[in-house]
Design a protein around this nucleic acid. Structure first.
Ligand SMILES: [Mn+2]
Ligand SMILES: [Mn+2]
Ligand SMILES: [Zn+2]
Ligand SMILES: [Zn+2]
Lengths: 138, 138
DNA sequence: GGAATAGTGCAACAGAAGTGCATTTAATGC
DNA sequence: GCATTAAATGCACTTCTGTTGCACTATTCC
């Protein structure tokens, strides 16, 4: 049983061949991935399978979905300190307008926001658009 | 020349019948509107016209587009103090998960966010999802 | 092994966004 | 006013992402 298989098993995700491949692919990327990214990376990849795999990953708490403002959902494996389950402690995301990559800034937590009375916050999404570190140094 | 016509004219937007209607509709709403909201509000409304009208409104700086995480673009007329043109001073948006309404919290500015070195911020989007004041009081 | 369950592949659909082009409408100059 | 020109609109069509139903396959459990 490999490390990945253990990780999946821990969260009661049956470690099928496709799931392991997808997990590996995501783990190898420093950025969040779109469904089509995975689709293009593998010859034999069914969009539906990817769709449902990502959904499973998210529901079981090993990945989180990111809305970066492009209207294309991105996904990233949860990092240590990610704490996606808990409402608090959410990190922010960066979307580079040049290379179109979306990056989890896990260390950068979203500051507390004061709301007008009557408003109850359940979830918060903070996305910064700009130039990423790779793009800015060139 | 009515007040609305003046507003449009000031930003060099030709005040056509449809544009005035759309402007009125948006001004009468306290929440941001989706394209389909306008489409449903008028019998004779062409999606393309609405689409391009909203785009024009945005480009000319009398409205701003809002990505509230629903993957449906919302639009709202700019309020005094909205300052959409300037990167700084952006306000946050609230999306109610119960009534599905999206609200501009023009008074609530997005706090300054520190980024890792190399990252350059150009735009920032902060959306809070939860229960709005109307929904929470019931 | 066989029943039950979970995962996958294929097909099809929904909804929003976007584009090209012909037609209509409005502004401008004479 | 009327012709000329440019802008706005309406219609048809395409693309893309997301989503679901259903049949088929693989895996687990007894
Ligand atoms: Mn993230
Ligand atoms: Mn707003
Ligand atoms: Zn970049
Ligand atoms: Zn509400």
């Amino acid at each position: 049983m490999t490390e990945i298989e253990k990780t999946l098993d821990n969260k009661s995700i049956r470690p099928t061949a496709m799931r392991i491949l997808i997990y590996k692919f995501m783990a190898g990327k420093k950025t969040a991935v779109a469904l089509t990214d995975i689709e293009n990376a593998f010859e034999k990849a069914e969009r539906t399978t990817l769709y449902r795999t990502l959904k499973t990953f998210e529901e079981k708490g090993i990945a989180h979905q990111i809305d970066d403002g492009t209207n294309i959902s991105k996904f990233a494996l949860c990092q240590p300190g990610c704490n996606c389950e808990i409402d608090q402690d959410l990190h922010l995301h960066f979307h580079c307008s040049q290379c179109d990559k979306t990056i989890c800034l896990t260390e950068h937590k979203i500051p507390h926001i004061n709301l007008p009375s009557g408003y109850i916050a359940e979830d918060v999404n903070l996305v910064i658009k700009g130039i990423c570190d790779s793009c800015s140094e060139h």
